[in-house]
């Protein structure tokens, strides 16, 4: 909590964007999270420039080279190599692309599903709300990892299936938050005014209500992205997510698990990066929530 926000500064600040921006700059968690996320994003985008080696190039003569701060390190491989002699730094950099890419894609797709369902339920209410709420409750009753494992095993693992399966499983929080926020908005007089002017229902939803949900949508999207990255790592670790030889942090942890006793860095480095990335996104999301949509703090 920044504590700088008076309760009266709800949704109608002076200029909607400017107020959020000014408050964001003063929020330490938000700034730190954003900085780390930006750093990792730049690293991921610039992977081809930064990586010293081809992440797929095997070099069986140089298997399990330790990282630079340990005995037996080689300058050609600053973070060592894996069990196939592939450069670990390069694989970690390319792995960031996979994590961020999948996280973003899932956050966007599940956002589309969840927002559509939540806004529909919240705006129309009644029977439609009952049906959609039942679907949400049913979805919440499904164990995500088990269903994802079953679905991926059934359809066959590929990046597309992985993204699709996760998007179909992670939309519930969007739906719940958007439903409540829409209910709040639809009873406001500006929605009635738009109806009295003769606006069509789709236009009211898209042009009048949705812009007022943007704050909360961004907050949920951030938190969902962290969730998606963790799920991708978990599925990849279990062998049903990203498939070898594509570098994914979860897969790298899985590949390193035989070496956990004597070469723990193989697990430690992707694991630490995963924690850092998810922590950064969650801190950013929490900060955004404090600043942009304090009412949704749960």
């Amino acid at each position: 909590m920044s504590g700088a926000l008076a309760p009266s500064e709800g949704i109608a600040g002076p200029r909607p964007g400017a107020r959020v921006l000014a408050a964001s700059a003063r929020h330490p968690g938000l700034v730190a999270g954003l900085a780390v996320l930006l750093l990792l994003t730049v690293a991921a985008l610039a992977a081809p420039l930064l990586a010293p080696h081809d992440p797929y190039a095997q070099d069986l003569a140089n298997r399990i080279v330790p990282p630079a701060w340990m005995d037996g390190a080689k300058t050609a491989h600053p973070l060592g190599t894996d069990h196939l002699g592939r450069d670990y730094l390069s694989r970690l950099l390319y792995g960031a692309r996979v994590s961020l890419g999948i996280g973003l894609a899932v956050a966007l797709l599940s956002g589309l599903i969840g927002t559509a369902l939540g806004v529909t339920a919240g705006y129309f209410g009644g029977r439609i709300d009952m049906i959609i709420s039942f679907v949400v409750t049913t979805r919440l009753a499904l164990p995500i990892v088990l269903v994802a494992l079953a679905a991926v095993a059934l359809v066959g693992a590929s990046l597309q299936t992985l993204v699709a399966v996760m998007a179909l499983l992670l939309w519930d929080r969007y739906a719940v938050v958007m439903r409540a926020a829409t209910q709040q908005m639809r009873s406001r007089a500006f929605v009635t005014a738009a109806r009295a002017v003769g606006c069509s229902t789709p236009r009211i939803i898209v042009a009048e209500i949705l812009p007022n949900l943007a704050n909360q949508l961004i907050v949920v999207a951030t938190l969902e992205m962290a969730q998606a990255i963790l799920l991708e790592a978990a599925l990849s670790f279990l062998g049903l997510g990203v498939q070898a030889p594509i570098p994914s942090w979860g897969l790298m942890i899985a590949e390193g698990k035989e070496h956990i006793l004597f070469e723990p860095w193989l697990i430690f480095m992707p694991g630490a990066l995963l924690v850092l990335l998810v922590l950064a996104i969650n801190t950013l999301g929490d900060g955004l929530r404090d600043v942009a949509a304090p009412s949704t703090r749960a």
Binding site: A189, F190, V197, N212
Partner: peptide
Amino acid sequence: QPVFQDPYASLNPR
């Protein structure tokens, strides 16, 4: 056409 009571609620803040 209507004019509502609360001009804080009847105008879209966005």
